[in-house]
Amino acid sequence: MNEFPPEFDPARLIQTMSKNGHNKLIGTRYHAHGQGWCELALPYSETLVTDTASGILASGPIFTLMDMATSLSIWLKTGTFQPQATLDLRIDYLRPARPGNTVIGHGECYHVTKSIAFIRGHAHDGDPEKPIAHVAGTYFFTASA
């Protein structure tokens, strides 16, 4: 396992990850982090809506936002860079995000075993007290088998 170097900066890591691949396409950005949790932002974009008339964001980008926020929370929980893959992720869509609003995704790793990380999280579009989605899921450490 690789311990985090003292100068480890999750914000910089996320900025690097957001420069290419699917996170670039969706536009996820760093928002905040702490011990075992991470928050990312998904700025509103007309290229990500499900229906031009309503302007409502598709659920796919919110799923991606939560997948990334929860997976990063595992590294922030363990303090190590273990390769990991999503085993399952469930998302409950409480209500649509309001068109034009940035969505904030909060991911939290609440338990890890040798092989599995257990995560949960929620998303909101401005007021953390009024979530738009909740997630729960598991990741497995691909090098642990």
Binding site: N20, G21, K24, L25, S59, G60, F63, T64, D67
Partner: peptide
């Protein structure tokens, strides 16, 4: 495409979920 890539060499789980939902 690069737009659906997650970790190097693999499709992002979020892109797969978006495909399944669609």
């Amino acid at each position: 495409s690069d737009g659906v890539r997650g970790r190097p060499g693999f499709v992002h789980g979020g892109a797969l979920a978006g495909l399944l939902e669609t």
